[in-house]
C-alpha cells in the first residue's frame, strides 16, 4: 500500500514541472481546483437556497459566455471571409456599407450596446413575446456576441492577409484548388486555429465581464423596469442582491478589523463567493490565454 502512495506521489511530483511549464494547463487545473473547493465549502457552510441560487447563476453565466463565443466565432468567421470575397463577387459595392456598419459597431462602447440589447429583451418579455428561459439566454448571448466579435474579425482578416502574401497560396490556386477551400481550410483551420482559440479564450473573459456588469447594472439601476425574475439569474444579478452587497461591504470592514476576516468565509459567504467567482475566473482566463499563446508561440 505504501508503495502505491509513493508511486502516486512520484507520478504527481514528476508531472508538476511539466504542468508548470505549460501555464495554460496549469491555470485550468488551478481554476478547476479552486471552483471545486469553493463548491464543497459552500455546500457545507452556505444555506441551501443561496447555494442553489449561486449554482444556477454560475451555470447560466458560463452557458451565456460559452454561447457568446460560439456566436462570435460564427459571426467573425463569416464576416471576415465575406469581406475577403465581396470585392470579387457581383456586388462589390456591398463592401463599403458593410465596413461602415462594422466600424459603427466598433465605435459603440460595448457596455452600452449590450445594455440596450438587454433593454430590448426585457421589452419583449414584458410584451409576452418572449418567455422561454433558454431562448432568453441564447438571445442575451447573441447580443453580447454582436459587440465583441469584431476583435476576432480583425484577427481572422490579419491571418488571411498574412498568408495571402505567401507562395503556397498561389501554388494551390495554380493547382486548381478553390480559393474558399484555401481560406477556410488551409489558412484558417490548419494554420490559424491556435490564434483563433487564443482569442476565443480572451473573449470568454470579456463576455463574462460584460454580462456580469450589465446584469449588475440592470438589477440595481432598472429594478422597477426589469424584474430580476424575468431574466435568468447570473453572477452579476446575484452580486446586486442586498445580501451580497452587505457581504462585499464586510471586506472593507475587515481591512481595519483583521480579526473579522475569518467571518468572511462563514457569515458573508454568498457575496464573497459570487465576487470571487467573477474575479478569479477573469484572472484565470487571462492567465490561460497568456499560457496558451506562449505554448503555441503565437
Amino acid at each position: 500500500m505504501s508503495m502505491n502512495y509513493r508511486s502516486i506521489y512520484r507520478y504527481i511530483a514528476g508531472q508538476l514541472p511539466l504542468l508548470y511549464a505549460q501555464k495554460d494547463k496549469l491555470w485550468i487545473a488551478i481554476w478547476l481546483a479552486a471552483i471545486s473547493a469553493l463548491w464543497l465549502w459552500n455546500r457545507i457552510f452556505l444555506n441551501y437556497p443561496a447555494f442553489t441560487q449561486i449554482q444556477s447563476a454560475f451555470l447560466n453565466t458560463f452557458l451565456m459566455a460559452f454561447l457568446c463565443i460560439i456566436f462570435s466565432l460564427l459571426l467573425a468567421w463569416s464576416t471576415a471571409v465575406g469581406l475577403h470575397f465581396i470585392p470579387s463577387t457581383r456586388a462589390p459595392y456591398l463592401l463599403l456599407p458593410l465596413t461602415f456598419v462594422l466600424n459603427l459597431i466598433r465605435s459603440v462602447p460595448q457596455i452600452l450596446g449590450v445594455l440596450i440589447g438587454y433593454i430590448g429583451v426585457t421589452v419583449l418579455i414584458r410584451a409576452d413575446m418572449l418567455s422561454n428561459r433558454t431562448t432568453i439566454i441564447i438571445l442575451l448571448a447573441f447580443i453580447t456576441a454582436l459587440f465583441v466579435f469584431l476583435e476576432l474579425v480583425d484577427l481572422i482578416r490579419e491571418r488571411i492577409d498574412h498568408f495571402r502574401k505567401l507562395d503556397f497560396v498561389n501554388a494551390m490556386l495554380c493547382c486548381g484548388i478553390k480559393e474558399s477551400r484555401i481560406i477556410n481550410i488551409e489558412i484558417l483551420w490548419k494554420n490559424s486555429l491556435a490564434h483563433v482559440l487564443n482569442k476565443l479564450i480572451a473573449l470568454f473573459g470579456v463576455a463574462i465581464f460584460l454580462q456580469c456588469s450589465v446584469d449588475f447594472i440592470v438589477s440595481i439601476g432598472l429594478s422597477t423596469e426589469v424584474s430580476p425574475v424575468n431574466l435568468p439569474p447570473t453572477l452579476g444579478s446575484m452580486l446586486a442582491k442586498i445580501d451580497s452587497k452587505q457581504d462585499i461591504l464586510a471586506i472593507g470592514y475587515s481591512l481595519t478589523h483583521p480579526t473579522y476576516v475569518a467571518n468572511l468565509l462563514f457569515q458573508h459567504l454568498q457575496g464573497i463567493t459570487t465576487a470571487f467567482l467573477i474575479v478569479f475566473t477573469l484572472l484565470s482566463m487571462y492567465r490561460i490565454s497568456i499560457g496558451f499563446s506562449r505554448r503555441h508561440r503565437l
Binding site: 449588475f216 452580486l239 472593507g252
Partner: peptide, 17 residues
C-alpha cells in the same frame, strides 16, 4: 485580484472605509 476586479466589486469593498 484587485486589477481584475470589476469596479463595482472594488467600490463596494471600500465603501465602508
Amino acid at each position: 485580484l484587485i486589477l481584475f476586479s470589476p469596479a463595482y466589486v472594488l467600490a463596494y469593498s471600500f465603501r465602508s472605509r
